[in-house]
Design a protein around this nucleic acid. Structure first.
Length: 597
RNA sequence: GCCUCGGUAGCUCAGUUGGAUAGAGCAACUGCCUUCUAAGCAGUAGGUCAUGGGUUCGAAUCCCGUCCGGGGUACCA
């Protein structure tokens, strides 16, 4: 049992014995003691005053005395106003460290076949353009969330729904047909997703120009947008596609293959993967069938123009279209189909959608619609809603070219990592491949940590002018600490010093070391909290805090040069534990740690 | 208009179920590499927690109002 829990239980017991009233242990407030005050844990006694009918100081002293008598781990206490500061015995902390050192699983049970199954949908790209910084945030959050849930005992199926059909890809297809000059990834050397994205931009350029020309001729803007030859051609392609015209399907398939090949490279570089990929081209008809079933069962209604609607006014929402008047499906329809297929394929206990907060309303509606269609799991699907990545001048817009491309960004960061590393003269003796691997580890560490350390719910700002930092509260700082500890451990091994938890009975430890052990022992609860809050940022902040504390310790104490053998081994074990947690915590964020840097 | 999320140091962000004197990093300034890796450490400076009320022993945190900003809002995805 964690010491906090024990204290809470004992305080409740003390309140009952001393003042004769029940108090829920859960409501006892136990905090870490302020750094400038003596003690390890602090009990806030204000809530008991009503029961004790005594002053804060006297109440605190009563309770402190009780703890001192009843709890072996409590070494002493001190009262400041309404705060009872408790000092925990050194032996307790030493035992905590020994336990942590011997436990490689951090007290967690690995998920088994009977564990709840969570499906996490993330990434969900459109096939008309390459991935950008916004997608990176999505991918990193989704992947990390999967790892967190696994660490918290859940079976996880990572899934991706690829939006491979619709007007957007037809635009690229048309542009390629018209102005493509037979270009392919092979004959141009351009990555497939980028090539297709270029044609999407090209389409938009021509489309805008055509609109301008029409407007100049006196056509209204709305009409011009409908009448421009390019958009008409793209719509024709979509109709042909839906009619399964062989030539159109062949073109569609070819260009999508280019994109997938490109995405695969990006995903691999980014270090994310999926257990199961769904394609919208396979699911949209299922969704349509489901909507028609709902119509037949009377949960939806049809207007005179044949469009199908859901009336959600009773749920406090608006009316929502599900099938257009021409019978084609909308985004919502497809998501219904995808959900059905998924639940046919897996016995899912919980569905999590990692999708930006601009779609909060969409998922609110989806949840209700699935429920109305008779899916019991619809109601408690979880929309993991994350904030936008903003640029200093506003939002990223692919059509306007104000995007930070994922591939470019990663390549740049690897380059910066290489330069920095070379300037510092690290990695001497590494082969070129080994060095490159390390640069990638550092660059991706910087990028991932940068994205994951902020609260997922909040919008975040990325300034392309200032490249992502490698100093301070960053991934490389944490990786660096890890590499240094590994170096110490290697040297200890060379010297024949064996880490063991037999520290001898006279060992004294400093306040900073106590702090560190306290932090180490909180790692499992940090994972739990992060998983339950769906927030990798909780882990990021925890690890940073641990590393910061360790670095302060490291600069004040020598490890290998320490003459007292017990102290030396103790510090080695302490360091090894910090390294173990860094590695584990970082891997929960999909970040690797280098042996050297 | 309505719904929704946000506003903490010059900048980027933390801030536990309401607890003591609101914390980091970056940028600026000052020190520290002959000693286990200086991508580090120590220090200085920087705050009306948007704003006005309320709740109470106690509010950045909870409630109400106001201002500012993001997102959404019936045939885009």
């Amino acid at each position: 049992m964690l010491i906090e829990q024990l204290i809470k239980a004992k305080i409740a017991e003390a309140v009952l014995q001393l003042y004769g009233q029940e108090f829920d242990p859960k409501n006892v407030q136990v905090n870490n003691t302020r750094k400038d005050v003596d003690g390890d844990l602090t009990v806030v006694v204000f809530p008991f005053l009503r029961i004790s009918k005594k002053s804060p100081e006297i109440t605190a002293t009563d309770l402190g005395q009780f703890l001192l008598n009843q709890v072996a781990e409590v070494a002493s206490f001190d009262v400041v106003k309404g705060f009872l500061n408790i000092t925990i015995a050194t032996s307790y902390w030493i035992n905590q460290l020994a336990e942590a050192f011997n436990d490689d699983d951090f007290g967690f049970t690995k998920p088994g076949p009977d564990s709840p199954l969570v499906m996490v949908e993330y990434s969900s790209p459109n096939t008309n353009k390459p991935l950008h910084l916004g997608h990176i945030r999505n991918n990193l959050l989704g992947f990390s969330l999967g790892e967190l849930l696994k660490a918290n005992g859940k079976q996880v199926v990572k899934t991706n729904i690829v939006n491979d059909r619709g007007i957007h890809i037809c635009k690229s297809m048309y542009a390629w047909q018209k102005w493509g000059e037979g270009k392919t990834p092979e004959n141009t050397g351009i990555k497939g997703d980028h090539l297709v994205g270029d044609f999407y931009v090209l389409f938009d350029k021509h489309y805008k120009q055509e609109i301008e020309e029409l407007v100049a001729k006196g056509v209204s803007k709305d009409e011009a947008e409908q009448q421009a030859p390019s958009i008409i051609a793209a719509r024709e392609l979509l109709l042909k596609w839906e009619a399964k015209d062989p030539e159109t399907i062949a073109l569609w398939s070819m260009m999508n293959q280019w994109v997938y090949a490109g995405f695969d490279v990006t995903y691999q570089e980014l270090g994310v993967d999926f257990d199961k990929i769904y394609y919208e081209s396979d699911t949209y008809l299922v969704g349509k069938d489901e909507v028609l079933r709902g119509l037949k069962e009377g949960v939806f209604e049809q207007k005179e123009d044949n469009s199908v609607w859901a009336d959600l006014t009773e749920d406090g929402l608006d009316r929502k279209i599900l099938l257009r008047s021409d019978g084609t499906s909308v985004y919502m329809t497809q998501d219904i189909g995808t959900a059905k297929l998924r639940f046919d394929d897996y016995t899912i206990d919980k569905m999590v959608y990692v999708v930006g907060n601009e779609q909060n309303y969409h998922f609110q509606v989806l949840s209700i619609l699935l429920d109305k269609l008779g899916y019991s799991w619809g109601k408690d699907l979880h929309h993991f809603s994350y904030g936008m990545v903003e640029l200093p001048h506003g939002k990223m817009k692919s059509r306007e070219g104000t995007v930070v491309d994922a591939d470019d960004l990663m390549a740049e960061m690897i380059e910066v990592a290489r330069k920095t590393s070379e300037e510092l003269g690290k990695l001497e003796g590494y082969t070129e491949e080994e060095a490159l691997e390390t640069y990638k580890t550092i660059a991706l560490g910087a990028l991932k940590y940068f994205m994951l350390k902020v609260d997922p719910k909040k919008n975040m700002l990325f300034n392309p002018e200032e490249s992502i930092d490698f100093n301070g509260n960053t991934g490389p700082f944490i990786q660096y600490t890890y590499a240094r500890i590994r170096s110490v451990l290697r040297k200890a091994e060379d010297k024949g010093i064996v880490p063991s938890v037999d520290f001898g009975s006279t060992l004294q430890i400093s306040e900073k070391e106590t702090e560190l052990i306290k932090t180490i022992s909180l790692y499992p609860s940090a994972i739990k909290e992060a998983a339950e809050a769906y927030s990798p940022a909780v882990i990021a902040n925890y690890v940073y805090n641990l590393v910061k504390e360790y670095n302060q310790f490291y600069h004040d104490h020598s490890i290998l040069n320490e003459t007292d053998e017990n102290v030396r081994v103790f510090r080695l074990v302490l360091s090894a534990n910090v390294a173990k947690i860094i590695k584990s915590g970082m891997s929960l964020m999909g970040i690797r740690v280098p042996e050297r840097m």
